[in-house]
C-alpha cells in the first residue's frame, strides 16, 4: 500500500475491530459538572470510540426526566466561584452565595453562555448521545435510595448494579467525574 493510502486509512476506526472504549462515571448533579461527561462522551463517539456513562448519586438528576431540565448551580462551597465571563477578577465570597436568588442568577448566566456556544441543553444533549450510540445507565443503589424506577429515567437509559458495572467497564478506560 502506498504511503498516501496508509495515511488516509490510518484515520479510519473500524467499529468491529476497535478495542478502545471509554466508560464515564457521572456523580455530580450541578450544571457545571453536567457538561464534562456529556462533551467527552460525544467527542468519543465522534472519533469512533465506544462510550458508556454510568450515572450515580447526584449525577442521576441528569438522566431523570423530571429533573434533567432543571439542573442548576451551587453558589456556596466553590472556592473558584466567580462571574468568569463578565468579571473574572471578582471572586464571589461564600456569604454572597447565600443571598436568595444567587443560584438562580448564576444558573441563568451559565445557561446563557452554554447557549451562546451552541451547546445543547441537557435533555437534548442526552438524546443526541443516545442517537450517537452512547449507552446510559442509572446506578441501581442510588436509584433505590432516591426512590426512582427505570421509567423515571430518560427513555433509552437502563438501571445497572455495581457488579454489572464491573463487567461493563472490563477492558475500558474509566473516568470518574
Amino acid at each position: 500500500m502506498s504511503d498516501v493510502l496508509a495515511k488516509i486509512k490510518g484515520m479510519k476506526v473500524d467499529e468491529k475491530t476497535t478495542t478502545r472504549k471509554l466508560v464515564l462515571v457521572s456523580s455530580k448533579g450541578g450544571l457545571d459538572m453536567a457538561y464534562p461527561p456529556m462533551i467527552l462522551a460525544n467527542a468519543a463517539r465522534m472519533s469512533g470510540i465506544e462510550c458508556e456513562i454510568f450515572f450515580t448519586f447526584w449525577g442521576l438528576d441528569l438522566i431523570t426526566k423530571k429533573k434533567m431540565g432543571k439542573v442548576n448551580i451551587a453558589t456556596v462551597g466553590n472556592p473558584a466561584f466567580s462571574m468568569a465571563p463578565y468579571a473574572p477578577w471578582f471572586k464571589i465570597p461564600t456569604w454572597m452565595g447565600l443571598i436568595p436568588g444567587m443560584s438562580w442568577v448564576a444558573t441563568k448566566m451559565m445557561a446563557y453562555q452554554i447557549k451562546k456556544l451552541d451547546f445543547p441543553p441537557i435533555p437534548e444533549f442526552m438524546e443526541n448521545l443516545l442517537d450517537s450510540g452512547v449507552k446510559l445507565y442509572g446506578c441501581k443503589l442510588s436509584m433505590d435510595m432516591m426512590n426512582l424506577q427505570e421509567e423515571d429515567l430518560i427513555d433509552g437509559a437502563t438501571m445497572l448494579g455495581a457488579m454489572e458495572f464491573m463487567e461493563l467497564s472490563k477492558d475500558a478506560q474509566v473516568m470518574f467525574v
Binding site: 479510519k12 476506526v13 473500524d14 463517539r45 465522534m46 472519533s47 450510540g133
Partner: peptide, 11 residues
C-alpha cells in the same frame, strides 16, 4: 453515524 461509521466528524 450510519453514513460514516467510526467517527462522522472526522470522516
Amino acid at each position: 453515524y450510519v453514513l460514516f461509521p467510526g467517527g462522522p466528524a472526522k470522516l
